[in-house]
Nucleic acid binder design. Structure first.
Lengths: 127, 127
DNA sequence: ATTCATGCAAAGGGTTTGCAGGAAA
DNA sequence: TTTCCTGCAAACCCTTTGCATGAAT
């Protein structure tokens, strides 16, 4: 755990938005001015494989989440913003359905689509 | 609906895998040798906005699905392959939970993670 | 004639990688 | 010393875009 990796993790955990690698790079750079983008990517990858952070696929880009507790996400279709959704876990949603394809299922991901408070007005006006 | 767009849609509907734009480009090119990648991207975008196809986010890349019926996906963590999962819809999963963030929820996406038949052996051997 | 989509090629954004230098064991 | 990680820059992949041509109304 190098200083760089530690700061990256700290900065990511500090926010509740879900920054891209580049956004996180800017945040980290305020504390480690000489850090490089490559280092950010490399460490995000290590942290992800260690299960210390979550990696999200959003609009052909990656976003990261420092909160590894089980929770879901809502994505705004207007601006791409992503928020957390905590709620009753889908206990009812049994994994077994997976057998259909002989996949060995390890988990699931639930994401909501919608419009965030800032984008709702525009959508209403537009249609 | 130009000839290009029609062929793109036909080729996409023909398969049950979930090709990337580039993979689809190769498929289309077997019928329309002079088609360009740009045209494929442009038409996929139109088709997507018209609700005629689905666009998936997978590993920082887009994949497309010609089947717009309500179904889920399983993604192999080993090779990135994506398969369909048809099954009882999540009737039980009420949208209401969304109110938490003042989002106007329009839908949800459920994705399973796991290992496909081809990747299971490797994973077992490795650990 | 006008409009819109195409093919092509260049540009753009995001991510990965090779390499020499630096920190830690 | 050996190992691993870093900063830097170049390379790479995926996607979008500008432009002149071409098809269709």
């Amino acid at each position: 755990m190098t200083r760089q990796r530690q700061v990256i993790l700290e900065e990511l955990r500090k926010v509740d938005c879900h920054p891209t690698a580049d956004e996180l790079y800017l945040m980290v750079r305020s504390r480690l001015p000489r850090v490089s983008l490559g280092t950010v990517y490399r460490n995000l990858d290590v942290l992800f494989r260690n299960g210390e952070i979550q990696k999200l696929d959003a609009g052909g880009q990656h976003r990261f989440d420092g909160d590894v507790r089980n929770h879901y996400h809502v994505r705004c279709q207007g601006c791409g913003r992503i928020d957390d959704v905590f709620g009753e876990a889908l206990e009812a949603l049994a994994m077994p359905r997976s057998s259909a394809h002989d996949y060995e299922i390890t988990g699931y991901r639930l994401e909501f689509d919608g419009l965030c408070p800032a984008c709702v007005p525009q959508a209403e006006g537009g249609e």
